[in-house]
């Protein structure tokens, strides 16, 4: 029973990791850009959701949708106005400038929040806090379950969008071969902006779904971003099913590692696995090439 409980917990937390990582993966896959401020974007989303929850009577999951929309706009604007300028200067090599720029941006976001709001760790008060479903001996936390369901739905929706819709195909084409896609008439800049925006939107949704059970403080982003980086590499950059699988795997290692050893050891195992993947299958678990 203990194992089943651990398994369920692992899946639920893995699902949330996935939805955060998949945005990063998409951006990395399409634009070859690592958004180093991904974690801080999550923190800001959580902050907005927290305040909206405190001052408006809206249901936290409605707030989540609003924050998602806000973050979509933010990502779109950030990319089209700022990042595209930097990107256009890069050669075909991995764009380190974007990494550095977003690292600076992340620093500004995190420390500004600390100055303005202080470092207090605040937990949102919602009607879902502490509630759980009891199925015999099993306990399933309600806010985590809802987060898991939304996360999986979001990832599935994204995948469908990429596979079936016109825009989605344009995005996939660009990620496979930038120059050819442009020749085919696809606006590279537009694709980038939409991809980036989708990435930040997913982070916005994640922020909204986390607040019923996760505290908000200026450096909360780094907890998730470190894991996101690992998941992106694990699943293969640009791969949506890869990010989902990667998130679940990280969740499982964390929980079962903690069960058999301890939380700290579990963290180390996750990092070691990351190194192993980089060594043996750097293009990700689900990719077909040998990297």
């Amino acid at each position: 029973m203990l194992y089943l409980q651990t398994f369920i917990d692992a899946l639920m937390i893995g699902g949330v990791y996935s939805v955060i990582a998949v945005g990063l993966s998409l951006i990395f896959g399409v634009m070859r850009v690592i958004n180093w401020s991904h974690g801080e974007s999550l923190m800001v989303s959580m902050l907005i959701a927290l305040y909206m929850n405190q001052y408006t009577p809206l249901d936290p999951y409605v707030i989540m949708l609003i924050v998602g929309a806000v973050m979509f706009v933010y990502g779109y604007v950030l990319q089209s106005v700022v990042i595209s300028r930097i990107l256009s200067r890069e050669t075909d090599r991995e764009p380190i400038s974007c990494l550095l720029f977003t690292a600076g941006l992340g620093m500004v976001m995190s420390y500004s929040v600390q100055i303005i709001f202080g470092s207090k760790q605040v937990m949102a008060q919602t009607k879902y806090n502490g509630r759980a479903l009891h199925m015999g001996d099993l306990v399933v936390s309600l806010p985590k379950l809802i987060a898991f369901i939304i996360a999986v739905v979001a990832v599935a929706a994204l995948w469908t969008f990429l596979q079936k819709s016109e825009y989605g195909r344009a995005i996939r084409a660009t990620s496979q071969n930038r120059s050819v896609a442009t020749l085919m008439g696809i606006s590279e800049k537009r694709v980038y902006s939409v991809s980036f925006a989708i990435g930040t939107m997913l982070v916005g949704l994640a922020g909204g779904m986390l607040i019923p059970y996760f505290s908000v403080y200026p450096t909360v982003g780094s907890v998730f971003s470190n894991k996101s980086f690992i998941i992106v590499v694990l699943g293969g950059k640009g791969s949506v099913p890869g990010a989902l699988l990667g998130g679940l795997i990280v969740g499982l290692i964390e929980k079962f590692g903690a069960l058999f050893f301890s939380e700290s050891v579990a963290q180390i195992i996750v990092f070691l696995m990351f190194i192993a993947i980089l060594l043996f299958k750097p293009t990700g678990l689900l990719s077909k090439d040998k990297g």
Partner: peptide
Amino acid sequence: VTFHMRGSYYTLSSVALLNC
């Protein structure tokens, strides 16, 4: 072990190692 990685991947692995 890590030099075959380029650019962002290398950066990611360096941070992972530091955390480790």
